[in-house]
């Protein structure tokens, strides 16, 4: 049952991604709304998968890499759907759904079995800490997609290459606005996730902060986004600069998420 939901979601995300990518080449309204329906259906089956697993495991299913990747993807698609409602921007899907699909695909590389949870970690903080972290990640994921679109669009405007892609991408202002919005939502989420983690660490491990690699890298990620937010608010960093920083920030974020688990042993390296 659980696997069925999982592969159904994976299949739907695949079809939606193909639809969104084709839309980039042939922007037809019908294709856009079809893609929207498919990704929304995929999101529902994904929710079903996650909830089913929650019931089976008895705790928020983000305790191994299989679940984590899947949850990252779930959050990304959920936030994307929310942004799509706000901005009515089908092409955003062409840049975000591939990421969601890849995350889902990577998730299959890790064992799906539910291992018993360390009793010390059994706490409601598991839910808050991880959910907020992944919602924050998803926000930055959208910012990443919008930043790539921004760089393409601004490159074309600067160099007067006003081809078909230029027509399809939205205005620089819209893309910068998405970037800013993601930052204003994502940054508090990341902050709260770190605080919630610290509180939880105190109850579980007896110390708020232990300079575990995950904690260190989370802090680095936090600083990058803090710098971006600060730059935006005070000196008017925007446009290309903000886009590049969003991309750098997201790469560091991905390392915090994957690299630390796989490469740097520590308290957080659940596998």
């Amino acid at each position: 049952m659980n696997a069925l939901f999982f592969y159904l979601t994976l299949g739907l995300y695949f079809v939606a991604t193909v639809a969104y990518l084709v839309y980039l080449v042939k922007p037809q309204q019908a294709l856009g709304s079809a893609a929207r329906w498919i990704i929304s259906t995929g999101f529902l089956t994904h929710c079903a998968f996650t909830f089913d697993r929650y019931l089976e495991a008895g705790h928020t299913p983000i305790t191994n890499l299989h679940e984590s990747f899947s949850f990252f993807s779930l959050a990304l698609v959920g936030i994307f759907i929310a942004f799509d409602r706000r901005y009515k921007l089908v092409v955003l899907g062409s840049f975000v759904t591939p990421l969601a699909l890849v995350l889902m695909g990577v998730s299959t590389l890790f064992p799906a079995n539910i291992a018993p949870l360390n009793p010390a970690l059994k706490s409601k903080w598991l839910f808050f800490h991880t959910t907020m972290a992944f919602l924050g990640y998803a926000m930055f994921g959208i910012a990443f997609g919008a930043a790539i679109m921004y760089l393409i669009q601004s490159h074309m405007l600067k160099n007067r290459k006003l081809g078909a892609m230029f027509q399809r991408l939205p205005s620089l202002d819209t893309l910068d606005d998405i970037n800013y919005r993601c930052l204003t939502f994502g940054f508090p989420l990341l902050t709260f996730a770190i605080i919630a983690g610290a509180i939880w660490a105190e109850t579980a491990w007896g110390t708020y902060w232990s300079w575990d690699p995950k904690e260190t890298w989370s802090l680095i990620t936090w600083f990058v986004y803090a710098a971006l937010l600060h730059g935006r608010l005070t000196t008017g960093w925007r446009g290309r600069k903000a886009a590049i920083l969003s991309i750098v920030g997201f790469c560091i974020l991905l390392f915090t998420f994957i690299g630390v688990n796989l490469l740097l042993p520590g308290l957080h390296s659940y596998k």
């Binding site: 669009q153 405007l157 006003l162 230029f166 939205p170 205005s171 620089l172 202002d173 819209t174 606005d177």
Partner: peptide, 9 residues
């Protein structure tokens, strides 16, 4: 048209 692609509104 170009202005709209830069500024949106």
């Amino acid at each position: 048209e170009l202005a709209k692609k830069i500024f949106g509104d």
